[in-house]
Design a protein around this nucleic acid. Sequence first.
DNA 1: ATCATTTATCGTAATATTACGATTGATATG
DNA 2: CATATCAATCGTAATATTACGATAAATGAT
Lengths: 110, 110
Amino acid sequence: MGASKIIDYTEEQILVAKYAKALSHPARMAIMQLLLSKHSCICGDIVDELPISQSTVSQHLKELKEAGLIRGQIDGVSICYCINEPEWSKLTELLGHFFEKRHVKTNSCC
Amino acid sequence: MGASKIIDYTEEQILVAKYAKALSHPARMAIMQLLLSKHSCICGDIVDELPISQSTVSQHLKELKEAGLIRGQIDGVSICYCINEPEWSKLTELLGHFFEKRHVKTNSCC
DNA sequence: ATCATTTATCGTAATATTACGATTGATATG
DNA sequence: CATATCAATCGTAATATTACGATAAATGAT
């Protein structure tokens, strides 16, 4: 009968979902925008910019780091965060590819 | 001292986070890809395609519907789902804008 | 009217997320 | 060395997510 009952999700689906999840909270979006907007890196200023506590910001930073989207480097007593350029390129390419070229025509049923 | 302690997240941050969250699970990515790939709508075939139960698929469909990304229309005993074109355009525009033009140069600290 | 099919919803359990304050560990400065 | 500062981690609580089976509601077929 049905052609293809999939066994599992594709690598692409898993990867895009991972990136999407990393960006699925306003605080993490705000952090990424901050890091993208500054030409130099930011440290604990992030905490000052966000409307949440230091520990919560740290948690969000950890998630972004684990997703590979940002990196941190010790700079004296502070830590300097910035975009992880190679991974960010991968993300933009993937999402760009996914969200740009799709042209949906109005379908018959909806 | 610090210039701008933000009161709350921006509309854009909240909106992109919302879309990202909708796409933050492989099952929902798979559903979106299915709907994007078919030129006509899909119904309960989605259930057959995914490696999860019918009730779980229905839950994911509900989330995508609540995010505004898909629509469903009754078609006899089945329900036909498809991309919600206007909202999808908004998403692609937003994400396209966000992920395309950003050019990150290697920063000083990381 | 009865039965089968399709999809949504309910109930529930396991796990993850989000947030905070308190604490710890590291580095700088007095 | 003592103290202040910065950021991560711990402990904890509240809430959300994910998944399933069972059930319900709606439609189509017999």
